[in-house]
Design a protein around this nucleic acid. Structure first.
Lengths: 369, 369
DNA sequence: TTTCGCGTTGTGAGCACTAACGTTACTCGT
DNA sequence: ACGAGTAACGTTAGTGCTCACAACGCGAAA
């Protein structure tokens, strides 16, 4: 019989109803310590009769554990983050954990506020794709107060946390190499390449070196650019800086604009590489607006395998990230830490793979040449 | 100077450091009651020095408010729910609230578990798109324990809650009417039409009546079917039950299969209406596999305006839901309730609109006929 | 019988914080 | 001059629960 009243029953009322002490009732309901079968039955019956619902706040206050993990992502609306979050939520649910989600909107300040809020809510751990890998003081603060952190996608390396990433450089190199093998020499690349508008793109490309611990390399889009440059160098070609397009604001409209510009320039590229889902959407808008055919007029490889890539044109060749697995891995690592695992930081590098479809044609100039 | 130690400082330590009582420190830091400027400064200085971070659990335990709202959706990975969630999160953040998200996977049992967990965590309110509109006992329990509930998309009408929905019947009727006006007489419809596999589809269509308070009408996909049927009847045509396809499992692969079947049947439809994003994706897969051209071979209207609909073929005409607004509205209504608003339930019906693109052609048979 | 140990239960403290109330000092109006 | 009002602060109790500890009974081992 459920309780009708507005205030729900406490464990003390259950105990009184069952004729035992609150501690005993707690032992039965909380499933710890000792209790005899007879008492268990009495307590459970009383709890059911009163519609007792444990108050996890009180429990958390005393145990120091809330069974809640906090997640900070750029934007849950993005398919990438949504899928990662789904993975996290699945693992969390399996262990009786709740998940508090916050969007940083790629703003360092919002991210800090979010982390602060989550810590005040006493989350047991944090999963973060940090906007500010160069200034992770807020994450360090979390770790210092015994709140383990797992980073994914973007990682601040001078932070002692578990991490889950994919090998952006290698998979991008593989993808761009496919285009080069098809004879393409002028391959445009569309990437966010945040933060730091002042960053010297030409300098970065010139001295591109995967072993260099440059801060910008911690951002996936810069890593993907690195893979792009490496693919060129491996083929003995020098990349043309004109073909590397930085999208000033992280939105498909901006990507579309940049793609339009790229595709209508003098000596336009014969192929395109897009560094993430938003870039892909923008590129497709531009290609559609220009009434170009894929792959007859322009070849294409997209980072992130979105739903529509299997049926647009003759299928879009894409790099597929194991998004769900990123989420489950991050959550599993975090739960291990919460469970007390104090071993050295684990760094998981998951495999992305190329989904070959019909968006790569042999370069016409190659054919005629 | 931030604290290095693992346990963070409490308000008592701050008070001691500042030379005041815990209550006074609480008043300063919690911004309630009275306190002199001098004391405020001392306390704030002490708090900063100790790296004090308020414990919201303790605060919540005593005030009965956690500044947290719980959200239950089918699947955060779906663009619809992701966008609604984004709206909720935006409003929540603006008011200093956290958001705990859970997926029900369209399972009534999981939904009940999720609600139970959220109530145990003492959320101040719940936003739910319920799977089990016919058996909302768990939601009634929430309301009874003073936890306001706002429903969106799907609503259990015999529950006294605020609701946020769109007018599925009207907008679908408008969309299908466009197809009929273009001369199409055989329009296939792809819809989930859960729950109740035993539900008599033919009977539902035969007696389709928008004023009938049938349980199934509370589900958007059934409502959309109703709009479809009404569009036919308004045009003086009787819908062909063969063209109404129920997708047995809610996945794009199943939708694809059903669409393939539909498009290759004898007397195949000349146009298609898809009742949500997953159906649209499945339909496009089928159309692509059959190498049909849109709209030359088949016209199309899709419910839910997904990213790719602006650049696929000549653009896909779509029904666009104000997803973000659904989320913000639901969150605003909930925050009002949490704030103490006890007026009668509000039922918001938001406007969806038709985004006309290039996926509707005049029916060829109409032209020749 | 004594001693030990174990299962079982109750008692009391305390987690970090806020609300209610009491006390003090001070101001103001008449 | 005196009561009322108010600002500022402290004391205390209480939020719902868990944990350490003590106490007790009972059977087995010494």
């Amino acid at each position: 019989m459920a309780q009708r009243s507005s205030k729900s029953a406490t464990i003390i009322e259950v105990a009184r109803q069952a004729g035992v002490s609150p501690a005993t009732a707690g032992r039965v309901l909380g499933d710890y310590g000792y209790s005899s079968p007879e008492v268990q039955e009495k307590v459970r019956a009383a709890a059911a009769a009163l519609g007792y619902r444990p108050n996890r706040l009180a429990k958390g206050l005393i145990t120091g554990k809330t069974q809640t993990i906090g997640v900070v992502v750029g934007d849950i609306e993005s398919p990438f983050y949504a899928s990662v979050l789904r993975g996290i939520a699945d693992v969390a649910r399996g262990s009786g954990f709740g998940v508090i989600v916050t969007n940083s909107d790629e703003s360092a300040e919002r991210e800090r506020e979010a982390v602060q809020l989550l810590l005040e809510k006493q989350v047991d751990g944090l999963i973060v794709s940090s906007t500010c890998v160069g200034d992770p003081g807020h994450l360090q603060a979390a770790i210092s107060s015994n709140c383990p952190v797992v980073q994914f996608d973007r990682v601040a390396t001078d932070l002692e946390t578990d991490t889950v990433v994919i090998d952006n450089v290698a998979i991008t190199r593989a993808g761009v190499t496919k285009l080069i093998e098809a004879g393409h020499r002028r391959i445009g690349i569309l990437a966010e390449l945040a933060p730091g508008k002042d960053k010297d793109l030409a300098g970065f490309v010139a001295q591109a070196d995967p072993s260099d611990p440059d801060l910008y390399k911690h951002y996936p889009s810069w890593q993907r650019l690195l893979g792009y440059v490496e693919a060129y160098r491996q083929a003995g070609i020098e990349p043309d800086i004109e073909l590397i397009r930085r999208v000033p604001t992280y939105a498909s409209a901006a990507a579309r604009k940049e793609a339009l510009d790229l595709l209508t320039m003098r000596d336009a590229p014969t192929a395109l590489f897009t560094a993430d889902g938003l870039m892909s959407t923008g590129a497709l808008q531009a290609i559609s607006a220009l009434k170009l055919a894929i792959p007859a007029d322009v070849s294409l490889i997209c980072f992130d395998d979105l739903d529509w890539m299997q049926f647009v044109a003759h299928g879009i060749t894409a790099i597929s990230q194991p998004t769900h697995l990123i989420g489950t891995s991050a959550a599993e690592l975090l739960l291990q830490r919460i469970g007390g695992n104090a071993s050295a930081s684990q760094h998981r590098v998951l495999a992305a793979h190329l989904v070959e479809r019909g968006s790569i044609a042999v370069c016409p100039e190659e054919v005629s040449g």
